[in-house]
Computed example of a mutant assay.
Amino acid sequence: MSTATVRAGEFLVSEANGERSRESVTLTGGPYLPGQVLGVVTASGKHTAYASGATNGTETAAVVLYGPADGSAADVSAAVIARDAEVSEVLLTGADADAIADLAAAGIISR
């Protein structure tokens, strides 16, 4: 028996031409799998897991992690979906209704 995880970009339904939908960000914390909803820590500008009850900026969902990344030992650069994309809601990690609304405001639509 094997346990499969979400592959890089598997959560994407569609994205803009070229790399318009993607950005590179500094990621802290983890390990995270593709589809992790991320917020931005206001004080540092670094991305980490969205946390609805937080008060440090991560209470607002900003982007979705494209591939697996682990910034738990040290910050790493990671690719994210930041705009102009459709994503499969069931393949997102950490998304709640508020996160879905935040992502929609950024142009990332959940299907």
Rank of each mutant, 00 (worst) to 15 (best):
E10D: 15
A16P: 00
A4G: 07
A97L: 08
A78I: 06
A106Q: 13
G94P: 01
S14Y: 05
A105G: 13
A82Q: 07
P31C: 13
D98G: 04
D98F: 03
S52F: 08
E15N: 10
G94L: 11
T5M: 02
A16L: 10
I109Y: 14
R83Q: 10
H47G: 02
A78G: 06
A62R: 15
E10W: 05
G45D: 06
I100T: 08
N56D: 15
S14N: 14
I100P: 00
N17R: 13
L27T: 03
A61H: 07
G71I: 06
A85N: 09
P34N: 10
D70M: 12
V80A: 06
E89C: 02
H47N: 07
F11W: 12
T60N: 12
S24Y: 11
L38D: 05
A82K: 14
V80K: 04
S21F: 12
L91Y: 07
T26F: 06
R83P: 01
T93R: 15
I81C: 05
N56I: 01
V41T: 09
Y32S: 06
G71L: 07
A95S: 15
S52D: 12
H47Q: 08
A73S: 15
I100C: 02
V6L: 05
V64K: 13
N56M: 11
I100E: 05
A95M: 07
I109P: 00
L65I: 05
G45S: 10
R7G: 08
R22L: 14
D84R: 12
V25I: 15
S2G: 00
S88F: 05
I100R: 11
S88W: 05
D96I: 03
T5E: 07
L38R: 13
A49E: 09
R83A: 13
S21V: 08
A97E: 14
L38Y: 09
D96Q: 11
R83V: 04
A62V: 02
V6A: 07
A79C: 03
A62K: 15
V90R: 13
L65F: 09
A95G: 05
V87Y: 00
A99K: 04
R83W: 01
E23C: 03
P34L: 05
R7Y: 06
F11Q: 10
T48G: 04
A85S: 12
A99H: 03
Y66C: 01
G53M: 12
A82N: 07
S77C: 00
L12N: 10
A49T: 00
G107K: 11
G35H: 08
D84F: 07
T28G: 04
V6P: 01
A49D: 02
